[in-house]
Amino acid sequence: MPPIRTDWVEVRAESDIVHARQLVRRLSSEMGFRLVDQTKLVTAASELARNTVVHGGGGRLSWECIAEEGREGIRLTFHDCGPGIADVQLALKDGWSTGKGLGMGLSGTKRLVNEFEIESRPGRGTRVTITKWK
């Protein structure tokens, strides 16, 4: 089923992390997500946007407001052409970290959303797709 609305924004500079948070807050609140779910999705977006800027050397965030099987949701894809992650399974473990943070980046983010997909190859960049249903 095609998305109801879709678009993308650049995630290059540090200020784009703030913009990504504001964008996701606006979308989720417009779609009538519960406050707790809005907060979880915005937080997840913030984590992934920071990864894109800090580790991926910048990239883009594509967003879709979707509806299927009688439910509505938001799907966010963060895509960069940075160095990539050699061991994705390891990166998804609690406590794994390369930069600043508490090592909860990817594994914690996964717990905040309903669906989480990551594709990454060394030297070929990283693509993370998350979906949260209303």
Binding site: T39, K40, T109, L112
Partner: peptide, 13 residues
């Protein structure tokens, strides 16, 4: 705030 506290715990912090 409650929503922030719930999110932080879920995040593992």
């Amino acid at each position: 705030r409650p929503a922030v506290a719930i999110t932080l715990v879920e995040l593992g912090l």
